[in-house]
Design a protein around this nucleic acid. Structure first.
Length: 501
DNA sequence: AAAAAAG
């Protein structure tokens, strides 16, 4: 590994005088704007700075991404990660955590508590970008299970002033579960520091110890990780001071800024911070950024660095995907009961994704009636139930979890080797269009950190077959078919091929 | 024609 390779910023090619704003705009559009039809390029495509006179270096880089196999951008031994920066600041990739001038307490947390040895590739590149003044904004597309949580958690921990008892870092997540999970990672990493952190998520209403925010003293915790509604509420009650905010993180940022996601909430929070704090750094992390969101993000977040990972390292590649043609809905249940769960027991834990809460209850009942112990999580359940179900699953007490897309993003449980799509994800406006981003996120629940994994897509009827086809086309992949839904041997062979057996 | 957050 050529560890300390310099990430070329704008020095690679001096901009010719002929570069026009129009050309720059075209590049911006090209790099960020393309989508479905050339996703492969998309992952190779790199950053484009917002600053016109810095564009040409990237114009060159970008053209590499457009043409065929491009030469590596900065590291001959590892071309899978590419980054482009927006300013004059040179960033040196961190081959060791020591390169990041972290506090001793934080280093100890990384080595002892987290048991990390050295930064992952993504961490090596993003951390200098996050930590080096002038603390530019960052848009980072990092694949599932690659350690992006560490990037922004370490970023937040490094940037807060431990001596200042006031909120200085805020992280917004799409679900309660993800916020709590991220907080846990942060607390583990912060174990030897005095930095304080808490979650801003809906709390159990039955808990007698629960105190409504209106009756709580102002937050003095240094890091807050939460969901949009609760964070907004804390802000509107003036309990969460934004004056000292130094860093704002959006996990699953594409969803947080999507029109049909949390865009309104996210923008409001961002604007409130802008009004109160000067120079708050914004970090956006996700495994997916579709072109609509990309365009919006580039218009919304000024002056950003960007990072991309090649498509080859997507968990779509690490996880073996199958489709199973089922004659009817009952056959789907039989497949889960007789084939997948039996084998699944041997290979780890399983998450079964469904499209609606109703499907979740229906499948839950069907499997329970067959005598299978499964648990189900979906947003309509109480916070206590949700906490309990997640804890049992994370503790390994339960092996099969039915979930809506509540857990599609970010949920990290390394023992999950099997993902079942009882129903494929579809766009909310049409059930004839697959939601490829959600599909990728679901797949990413298996095969965490390069582990083996398999996905079974259960298909019934022409519509679902067509959805599967469209997903294959979108990602440019071929999803193998399990020959017969009714054959034990076929499923066993499939898991062997996935190297799970 | 959904789910999520949250009121």
């Amino acid at each position: 590994m050529s560890g300390s390779a310099e990430i070329p910023a704008t020095t690679a090619n001096p901009p010719p005088a002929t570069t026009t704003a129009a050309a720059a705009a075209a590049v911006v559009k090209r790099s960020w704007g393309d989508e479905a039809d050339d996703d492969a390029d998309d992952w190779n495509a790199v950053a484009v700075p917002t600053d016109d006179n810095k564009v040409t270096a990237d114009l060159n880089v970008d053209s590499l991404a457009i043409s065929e196999p491009e030469p590596p951008l900065y590291d001959p031994e590892d071309s899978s990660i590419q980054a482009v920066t927006a300013g004059d600041t040179p960033y040196t990739s961190a081959s060791k955590f020591e390169d990041l001038s972290l506090s001793d307490e934080l280093l100890k947390g990384l080595y002892v508590s987290m048991r990390f040895e050295r930064p992952s590739k993504i961490q090596a590149i993003t951390l200098p970008m996050i930590l080096t003044p002038p603390h530019k904004n960052l848009i980072a597309q990092a694949h599932n299970g690659s350690g992006k949580t560490t990037c922004f958690v370490l970023g937040m921990l490094s940037r807060v002033d431990p001596k200042l008892q006031a909120p200085q870092a805020l992280c917004i997540c799409p679900t309660r579960e993800l916020a709590l999970q991220n907080l846990e990672v942060l607390k583990k990493m912060a174990k030897y520091t005095a930095i304080t952190a808490e979650s801003a998520v809906q709390e159990s209403l039955n808990d007698p110890a629960h105190i409504p925010i209106s009756k709580r003293p102002p937050i003095t915790t240094q890091i807050v990780i939460g969901t949009p509604g609760t964070v907004k509420k804390w802000i509107s009650y003036k309990k969460l001071s934004l004056v000292y905010m130094k860093i704002l993180v959006f996990d699953e940022a594409d969803h947080m800024l999507a029109q049909d996601g949390f865009r309104d909430d996210s923008l409001r929070i961002m604007n409130e911070i802008k009004k109160n704090a000067s120079n708050c750094q914004v970090l956006l992390f996700s495994a997916t950024f579709n072109d609509t969101v990309k365009n919006f993000v580039t218009r919304t977040i000024p002056d950003y660095n960007q990072l991309f990972v090649k498509k080859e390292e997507l968990s779509l590649e690490a996880v073996k995907q199958y489709m199973v043609q089922c004659p009817d809905e009952l056959a789907k249940v039989h497949v889960i009961k007789d084939k997948i769960l039996d084998l699944g027991e041997k290979v780890g834990q399983t998450i079964i994704f469904v499209r609606t809460r109703e499907s979740a209850s229906m499948l839950h009942k069907a499997l329970m009636d067959f005598g299978f112990e499964v648990t189900t999580i979906q947003g309509a359940r109480t916070t206590e139930e949700r906490d309990k179900i997640v804890k049992e699953f994370k503790d390994g007490l339960t092996h099969v979890l039915i979930s809506t897309d509540l857990l599609a993003r970010g949920f990290d449980q390394s023992q999950v080797n099997l993902v079942v799509n009882y129903e494929l994800p579809v766009k909310h406006y049409s059930w004839n269009e697959p939601d490829c981003e959600v599909y990728l996120h679901r797949v990413g629940r298996a095969g965490r950190f390069g582990r083996r994994g398999a996905v079974f897509n259960l298909l019934c009827g022409d519509r679902e077959r067509m959805l599967m086809e469209k997903i294959e086309q979108h990602f440019g992949i071929k999803v193998d078919e399990v020959a017969s839904w009714n054959s034990d041997e076929d499923f066993e062979a499939a898991l062997k091929e996935a190297k799970l057996l």
